[in-house]
Each structure stands twice: as structure tokens, then as C-alpha cells.
Amino acid sequence: MIYLQLFITYFKVGLFGFGGGYPMLSLIQHEVVDQHGWITQQEFTDIVAISQMTPGPIGINSATYIGYTVTNNIFGSAIASIAVCLPSFIIVLAIARIFTTFRSNKYVDDVFRGLRPATVGLIAAAALLLMNPENFIDYKSIIIFGASFILTLFYRVHPILMIILAGISGLLLY
């Protein structure tokens, strides 16, 4: 019943994925790598890299890729991709109908005041889990990490350019 598992997993990711792509990564990682062991941390990192370089949101990209890897057919890709969008349909359309009362509701405000700092923690957890021996194989990895971190944070180098630069440095260093 791999299809049902895929569906439930990605439905959960869609339902609890707040705050955009990066916080969602930690959810996907927990479900797909830790809980089900469908892919390794290393493969997960590769999917994030591919996802950054191709169009579309990481939520869809990872669903499509993992759906295929797990089942070896397009059907798995489709099920995971639909499942991750399904909660949005139900919730977004419901909110749209009651929007004016929803936005000014103090309880909704309270919930988001709690969620915002937690999403920072979710992103941090995703980064920490990827700082492992699979991704950091030697001292060169640490140098590449440090350089990429500084270039993106302080010099605002575009993520795609960053991945291309890293790829080229890989050809030269290894």
C-alpha cells in the first residue's frame, strides 16, 4: 500500500506546511527520510539542489521526485503531487469565503504570533539535519559551506548562481 502511504505523507506535508518552502523542508525530511526511509539525507540534499535550479515550488518538486523514486512510475509522482495540494484546496477556499472576519480575528493573530518564531526553528532543524557526514565529506566541504553561506547572506548571490559556482568548484577540487 505504498500509494496510500505516499498520499497520507504528502497530505500531511500540505496540511502542516506553514511559512513557505524552507520550513516545509523539515516536514518533508522528517516524513520521507526519517520516518519512511524512502530516500537518504544525501538524496534529499540533491533533490533540494535540483529543486532550486528548476522551476516550481520545492513542495511539488519533492513530491514528484520522491513519488517516482518510491514507486518507479508516474502514478506515484501524480499521487504525491496531488496529495500535497489537496489540503490547500479545502482550507484556502474555506478561508476565502470568510476572509474579512478571518483576517481581523484575534485568535488567528494569536496563532500566527506563535507559528512565526517556530518556523525559524523548522528551517534551522532542516539545515542541522543536513550537516552530516554524507554531505560534509572532508574539509573542502566545510570551506564550500562557509563560502556559500557568506556569499548568499552578505553578498546576496542568487541561489542558482551559487549552485552553479559550487558545481564548478567541485570539478576543480575533486
Partner: peptide
Amino acid sequence: WVQKMFKAIRPAVVALIAVPVFTTAKSVGI
């Protein structure tokens, strides 16, 4: 050569995920 590239891309991707930890923390006022 694909393997060589990905060896270097992986730590760079981790950095790409580490950066929004700080930018998001700043924007939500931690």
C-alpha cells in the same frame, strides 16, 4: 564529473538552507 559537482553542491545547498534561518529570524523579529 556529475558526482564531483554534487560533492561540492551538497554543502552549498546546506548553506542555502542555513541562510534563511537568519533572514527569517530577523524579519519575524526574533
